[in-house]
Nucleic acid binder design. Structure first.
Length: 502
RNA sequence: GCCGCAUUCGUCUAGAGGCCCAGGACACCGCCCUCUCAAGGCGGAGAUCACCGGUUCGAAUCCGGUAUGCGGUACCA
């Protein structure tokens, strides 16, 4: 019945192209991937696009791109961008597998395990309302369950197209879920005979998932807990079709802060949005893997290959996990700091370009420019998208400085003017031979000491003058990055701003 | 309503009868480092292990019940 424990593991991720790649889908894909790689199994991608009304090619592409971006490569999957389908069970797109569902439906029909149902949406709605009013659980009333062939012909003759309903038998369906253990459902609570093929002939999820999982020889169905209650329907279908029933593993849900199922309404759910903000794949993968699972050690920053080694489906939790963006950001910072500098430059570039496109900076730095900033920028980036806020002042002609922020807390306007003027004199001299931090810092410290100023106050005045802000990377590295001429010009500009009335 | 699942610091988690009057991490607070901001180091606060019974010499860990939450209940997936 269940797969031979020794048989090679085959798992799949089966997204519906009805929206952008969702955090929950990514996590399910990751769990499947981790399990497959951990046990040396096969990871399959199947597109469940039978909801034609909501499925689009753009969403499909977005989901595939997102999965690739995460580094979750599949062994078998549909043809994309000119690449042929991979794997022995093509096609991997359900709308291209219609004949197999039709054949399976035919078998069920022939065996009288399913029947055409001509009930209209209006009738079904009325049934449901009546049941609700009578405080009964909603269930199909069986109006079409026992139509004679003549009655069916009659309806067809009237031009009515029947949906196909699967006959739900009696009894208890039990299975041993890998994460939840033994689970039982009384079939009488399933809501009666359920539709497996729409009146327009397109098959429904509960049906296609069973036909395909069987055809693709899936051994382990790893999916979200929201499918737990659907599982008995699937098992009934597997049995009716004479198929082996796979093992199941239902993952805990990812939750909104209020502990409801994570939703677009209450949380940021699209992977694309996280990418756009500068989260990196290493962090996202690391974070997602640790939602509802832990290696049982005190390690918390782990690369995908290390997670693969440690991953164990049996150790996955049963309880849902709230998505904690703050923790993701921390992990993102951890991973950004671990990035190779050249790699980081490559990843940063699109975000700098975005700053330019948004008009927040005025020109593009070169890769060398970017690279030279890394020693003091890398550890200050919680996300790649923070680059503009951090050092955007480097790539504009002038910065806005207002007299109030220019004056350090312990200083007054006159001292500030004096300090900046003195710095204006000292800096070019100190930097004459080499405009470097090692030259500038001692000179400015000496200046502060000579005047009896606290170095921090002088530095703050200079910082605001040349960057327009009070929080920046270390001052001397910043001065070097700006270059002598721009430093002097901005100092002059700041002194003018102090002199300006108001 | 019915069915199912779940419940350890605010959050993610460690824990599989004595090592736990519960450990780590994020966030928070303080100190150190320090030119600001980060990063880093050190320390602090934070969980009567949902509750009530039971089993046991001993329970976060086993059993039963209760509560609460969540999921499902579509000709969506």
């Amino acid at each position: 019945m269940t797969p031979d424990p020794a048989a090679p593991v085959r798992v799949r991720i089966a997204p519906s192209p009805t929206g952008p790649l969702h955090i929950g889908t990514a996590r399910t894909a990751l769990s499947n991937y981790l399990h497959a790689r951990h046990v040396g199994g096969t990871f399959i991608l199947r597109l469940e696009d039978t909801d034609v009304a909501r499925s689009t090619l753009e969403f499909e592409k977005g989901i595939l791109d997102g999965l690739h971006w995460l580094g979750l490569d599949w062994d078998e999957g549909p043809e994309v961008a000119g690449e042929p389908a991979r794997g022995p069970h093509a096609p991997y797109r359900q709308m291209e597998r219609l004949p197999s569902y039709a054949a399976a439906a035919q078998r069920l029909l022939a065996d009288d395990l399913a029947y055409p149902c001509y009930c209209t949406p209006v009738e079904l709605d009325a049934d449901r309302k009546a049941q609700e009013a009578a405080r009964q659980p909603p269930r199909y009333v069986g109006r079409c369950a026992h139509l004679t062939p003549e009655e069916r012909r009659e309806r067809e003759a009237q031009g009515r197209r029947g949906a196909l309903r699967f006959r739900v038998t009696e009894g208890v369906v039990a299975f041993d879920d890998i994460v939840r253990g033994h689970v039982e459902f009384d079939v009488s609570n399933l809501g009666g005979d359920f539709v497996i093929v729409r009146a327009d002939g397109t098959p429904l999820y509960h049906f296609t998932v069973v036909v395909d999982d069987s055809a693709m020889e899936i051994t382990d169905v790893i999916r979200g807990e929201d499918h737990l209650s659907n599982t008995p329907k699937h098992i009934l279908l597997f049995r009716a079709l004479g198929f082996d029933v796979p093992r199941f593993a239902h993952l805990p849900l990812i939750l909104n802060p209020d502990r409801s199922k994570m939703s677009k309404r209450k949380s940021q759910t699209a992977i694309d949005d996280y990418i756009a903000q500068g989260f990196i794949r290493e962090a996202l993968v690391n974070y997602l893997a640790f939602l509802g699972w832990s290696p049982g050690t005190e390690e918390d920053v782990l690369a995908l290959d290390e997670i693969v080694k440690r991953f164990d489906l049996h150790a996955v939790h049963k309880g849902g996990a709230v998505f904690d963006r703050e923790r993701l950001e921390w992990l993102n910072g951890q991973w950004i700091r671990r990035l190779d500098p050249d790699d980081l430059v490559d990843r940063l570039r699109p975000f700098v370009e975005a700053e330019l496109a948004a008009g927040r900076i005025e020109w593009m730095p070169t890769d060398e420019d970017l690279r030279s900033l890394l020693p003091f920028v890398q550890e200050r980036l919680p996300t790649l998208g923070a680059i503009g806020d951090l050092v955007g002042f480097l790539w504009v002609d002038e910065v806005d400085v207002d007299a109030t922020t220019l004056v350090p807390k312990r200083w007054d306007v006159a001292t500030t003017r004096e300090g900046l003027a003195a710095a204006r004199e000292v800096i070019p001299k100190a930097g004459e031979v080499a405009f470097e931090a090692d030259e500038l810092e001692p000179a400015l410290r000496a200046l502060a000491e000579a005047r009896g100023w606290k170095a921090g106050d002088l530095f703050m005045a200079i910082r605001v003058a040349v960057t327009g802000r009070t929080a920046t990377p270390p001052l001397f590295d910043t001065l070097v990055a700006l270059g002598r001429d721009r430093v002097l010009a901005r100092l002059d500009h700041a002194i003018e701003a102090l002199d300006a009335p108001g």
